[in-house]
């Protein structure tokens, strides 16, 4: 769980590994190929998605629409900024 400086990324993807059942929908259908399976297991024994290309995320939330377990979602940075959220404080990637 780390906060990164935003440079090129247009979106922030947030993953809750403990909710994931490893179906792979988000990894397969991510238009920017941001995600891949983790090497680790979660407590249920599934490989959850991890963001391997964080800077490519567009924040389209297609992963969030596909995820049958509500374990992942994307956010557009400009939408968050419009809501007055400080981007540097937002936790991104895999939340443990």
């Amino acid at each position: 769980m780390e906060t990164l400086e935003t440079k090129t990324a247009k979106g922030i993807v947030v993953i809750y590994p403990e909710k994931c059942k490893g179906c792979g929908f988000c990894i397969e259908f991510c238009p920017s190929h941001v995600l891949d399976f983790s090497k680790e297991f979660n407590s249920k024994g599934y490989h959850y998605p991890v963001d391997i290309a964080t800077d490519d995320c567009s924040g389209c939330d297609l992963c969030g629409l596909y995820c049958p377990d509500f374990a992942i979602f994307g956010n557009r940075i400009k939408d968050l900024v419009a809501k007055g959220i400080d981007i540097s404080q937002v936790k991104r990637g895999v939340l443990k």
């Binding site: 922030i12 947030v14 809750y16 909710k19 059942k21 490893g22 179906c23 792979g24 929908f25 599934y46 969030g64 049958p68 377990d69 509500f70 979602f73 956010n75 968050l80 959220i85 400080d86 404080q89 937002v90 936790k91 939340l95």
Partner: peptide
Amino acid sequence: MILENPVNQFLRQDRLPHIWCPGCG
């Protein structure tokens, strides 16, 4: 700051995780 999934407001969190299999649509 931790963002919340926009779906969460529509779900009964106390009943999750659901019973649907991995890969179910």
